[in-house]
Amino acid sequence: MNLHLLRTGPLAVNTYIVPLSDSEVFVVDPADCAFSDDEGSVVSFLKSNNLKPVAVILTHGHFDHISGLPSLVKSFPGIPVAIHKKDSALIGSLSADLQNISLSQMGFTQFLPFVSDLPDATHFLEDFKILSQVFENYSGFSEEAKTSLSKWQVLHTPGHTEGSVCLYNEEDLTLLSGDTVFYHSWGRTDLYGGSESKIRKSLLKILDYCEENTKVYPGHDHNGFLLKDNF
């Protein structure tokens, strides 16, 4: 699978552009913004490569993974935005209240204006649901894109946040793991919504459910490593 990777935002998030057809893609965790001096970089990449984003999918709602939402929604009006319900309050018009909790913990409150009054979610990700089912009431896809979406499954993996998810493609042996699985590590659990016991259960769920030769593409740093070699 030809995933396109852009590192965006103040913490160098791995923003993935996932192909669905020759021209249609979905975008995972857009993080570009004016604070990091890369605002519009995801949109520029899409337009310069003649790619049409048909959905934005958020692996979780932490500030560093969502700050690119406004530019994408503005540039592609009507594009659906999907997140797990348990993280949905971290975006939308009241996002500043919850984002401020984690930003205060990290001493990074200067970033609050960039994750305030964000676009609302239009769709919700549910455990084991196929992406074509998540977007079944949305008509903005070609038939080829719908077929490709049916290969992707949502895995609810709480622990980094309550609403953290991974996206698993068994056919292509690909896992977009957000901040749940990193290279020889896993996501921190000391911020708002985090739980060490829950993330350990989520890691066991991934190891049990996913094929061992699955390639893992996390939300930061090294990517494309095999699941079986990671733990």
Rank of each mutant, 00 (worst) to 15 (best):
L131M: 03
P119E: 02
K85D: 11
N100R: 15
V56A: 00
D117A: 13
R200V: 00
S21N: 02
V28F: 08
C210T: 10
S139L: 05
D97S: 13
I57W: 08
E144T: 14
F35I: 04
N14I: 05
K74F: 11
T189K: 02
F111W: 07
C210W: 08
V28I: 13
H220V: 07
F108I: 06
E162H: 12
S148T: 09
D120W: 05
P113H: 10
E196Y: 10
G61C: 01
T147H: 12
G193K: 10
V54R: 04
S88D: 10
E196K: 10
W186A: 01
K198W: 07
R188M: 06
L58Y: 12
K74W: 11
E136P: 00
M106C: 07
K86L: 14
G107N: 08
E196M: 08
S23L: 02
E212K: 14
P113Q: 04
L118E: 01
F225R: 11
N223P: 02
S132D: 10
K205R: 15
F45R: 12
H184W: 01
S150D: 09
L149F: 00
I79C: 01
V134M: 02
V28H: 07
D229Y: 07
Y183E: 07
M1H: 11
S148A: 15
E143A: 13
D87N: 06
F135I: 07
L191I: 13
L227N: 04
V28D: 05
K47Q: 13
Y192F: 15
K86D: 13
P53A: 04
F124G: 05
G224H: 07
I130H: 07
A121T: 13
E39K: 11
F135E: 05
L203C: 09
L191F: 13
D38R: 00
L58E: 08
H60T: 06
V42N: 13
S48F: 11
F225Q: 09
G159H: 04
Q105E: 15
G92N: 04
I91Q: 05
N230F: 02
F108H: 14
Y168T: 11
G163H: 08
E211H: 14
T157I: 01
S41P: 02
S116I: 00
A12Y: 11
D38V: 06
V27G: 04
H84A: 15
P113T: 01
I199D: 00
I79H: 05
K85H: 14
L6C: 05
Q153K: 15
D87C: 03
E144S: 12
E170G: 01
L173R: 15
